[in-house]
């Protein structure tokens, strides 16, 4: 069969738009609330609501470990999960570049279906626009989600307390490194796949261990280093980490060595940074290590009083120095 492509007519609102929606989106996102009316109609629940939105552009749109569809579900699911919310419903808006292959669009939708099913979230409304050639890079997706907060859970970026342990749920920098390699701009090869994963299941198990968790944040763009600075700032505390305790996969370490990059500042898409009382930390890590997306979870540091707003690192020679704050575009360096 001849390969079919998305055309401007697919976005014009007529018969072809319906065909695209029916063949691609309805086929994958079918559920009772996905009616195709102007808005989804949902039953309220008794608890608190978490509500979040995120736009996704990634080049290339598919990469080892996932594609933009999987990413767009994980991103919003994880944002909700960080607030202790079970993801319930999502919407998604596509901007598709004219000429994008239809079968590839279907691959993206299939990845979204699979990831949403895993996270237990329903896609209940959507939108499709087609942009002229060159106006967007293949496909952009925006997802919005609402979730139901587990009773008794109150995570917040302002809630880190002196004495809290700082936990990461796995090795850092994999997604950023994967994308960098997939762009093939530097001629480097390594067996690295994206950590992109939906983490509601992880968070749900975590709260079975204890509800006394102060902060959960997913490290996305900017990596774990950026999250540490965000929390230090929002909670008005200092954070001390041990450089040797930060898990980094071999391939990521090698690529960072070649390009002079810091793994703590490479993006993750399936890693949480958790702040919880030290007394709970061991039990949390033990539980995390039994779960599929957090087998390499580790305590990497603790919250301290001073210096407020800063992240201190204990280095391999036992000296304490500052983690450079996040800044600007990540550029490979030679010097």
């Amino acid at each position: 069969m001849e390969q079919q492509f998305v055309t401007l007519a697919h976005g014009a609102g007529g018969e072809q738009t319906n065909e695209l929606i029916n063949k691609v989106f309805k086929a994958h996102f079918a559920n009772p609330q996905f009616t195709g009316d102007d808005a989804a109609v949902l039953e309220p629940w008794s608890g608190k609501i978490a509500f979040s939105t995120d736009g996704f552009i990634v080049s290339p749109w598919e990469f080892p470990g996932g594609n933009i569809g999987k990413l767009s579900i994980c991103g919003t699911v994880n944002d909700l999960a960080c607030m202790g919310a079970k993801p319930k419903y999502m919407t998604c808006a596509f901007v598709i570049e004219e000429g994008f292959p239809l079968d590839k669009l279907e691959e993206i939708a299939a990845a979204m279906e699979k990831t949403a099913a895993e996270a237990g979230v329903r896609i209940v409304a959507g939108d499709t626009k087609v942009a002229g050639k060159g106006q967007v890079d293949n496909v952009f997706i925006t997802t919005t989600g609402i979730g139901e907060i587990i009773p008794g859970v109150r995570t917040s970026g302002t809630a880190a307390r002196v004495g809290d342990a700082v936990i990461v749920t796995g090795d850092v920098g994999r997604h950023g490194c994967t994308i960098l390699l997939a762009r093939d701009e530097f001629g480097i090869e390594a067996d690295v796949t994206s950590d992109c994963a939906p983490l509601w299941g992880t968070v749900e198990e975590l709260f079975k261990v204890t509800k006394d968790i102060h902060v959960i944040r997913d490290a996305t763009r900017g990596g774990v280093g950026t999250v540490l600075y965000e929390i230090a700032g929002q909670s008005h505390v200092g954070i001390k980490i041990d450089s040797k305790a930060v898990p980094v996969a071999d391939g990521v370490r090698g690529v960072c060595g070649m390009l002079g990059l810091e793994p703590l500042y490479l993006a993750c898409e399936g890693r949480l940074v958790i702040f919880a009382p030290k007394s709970e930390a061991e039990a949390i890590v033990a539980k995390l290590r039994q779960l599929p997306y957090s087998a390499d979870a580790a305590i990497i540091g603790e919250v301290i009083e001073d210096p407020v707003g800063k992240v201190v690192v204990t280095t391999e020679i036992g000296a304490q120095t500052m983690l450079p704050p996040p800044g600007g575009e990540l550029l490979p360096r030679i010097c």
């Binding site: 280095t315 020679i317 000296a319 304490q320 120095t321």
Partner: peptide, 8 residues
């Protein structure tokens, strides 16, 4: 700077 040599 990265390994904090000045501090010792």
């Amino acid at each position: 700077f990265r390994c904090g040599i000045r501090k010792i």
